[in-house]
Amino acid sequence: MSVSRFIAAAILATALILPHADAGEVAFSERRSGSTFMAPETQAMQSNDTANPGMLGVLDGATLWGKTIGAAEKSCASCHNDASTSMSGVAARYPAFDDTLKRPVDLEQRVNLCRVDHQRAPPLAYESRELLALTALIGRQSRGLPIAGGTDPRLTPFVDKGRATFMRRQGQLNLACTNCHDDNWYKRLAGSAITQAHPTGYPLYRLEWQGLGSLQRRLRNCMVGMRAQPYDADAPEMVELELYLMSRARGMPIETPAVRP
């Protein structure tokens, strides 16, 4: 990094250090995406589609979108036509309340409901290439649109449970999500910026993973770090946490597929 770039970065970093409360949720006006903590090179990788490795997943998803599968012999496109119109804004309001199940489902679960109910095909495994690709494609159609998570009043009790989980200390290290992501977001855990844990970019390409991963995978990483027993992929606590994070990030733009260190 050149000296002038370094100084510019340092000034920017200082300007970004805002007054902060010592406990409780991050103030609305202080919210920042994880991407604002990244090195300029990583930011450039995210914003340039030809350099963003997550775009491969989106392209893969576009192929799967048109593929006929299952006993119903239908593709996603058979019912939803062009994803760029039918899926615009959809990811920005998930997890959403499912009328049949009477509970929130996340985007992964929603895709699998269509696989099983509408395509008559087996559900895709969590973190499988196909499920990541389809959710990346759908998420991409909300890029730049404001997150509208948790606005449905039927979701309120589930958002509240997610918040309670976020605030509860867990694991052998006896830490809560809030201890890091509300109280210490501007600090560094060993070498890593802690950030405010906004779910703006999922599924995203994480350099450490060398691949795409879901929000659930990221949450499991933090739980393992706390030495807590991670929740199962289909546990209600997982969707509640995702929902709380989306409601906490309401209004922030979707970045899918984002890049993170």
Binding site: R168, R169, G171, Q172
Partner: peptide, 23 residues
């Protein structure tokens, strides 16, 4: 936020293989 390095009580959802053991 500093963990208790020699304590096993009063902790929730400790990862299974670590339960009942101090850090």
């Amino acid at each position: 936020i500093m963990p208790s390095y020699y304590r096993i009580d009063g902790l929730q959802r400790v990862a299974e293989p670590l339960r009942g053991r101090p850090i």
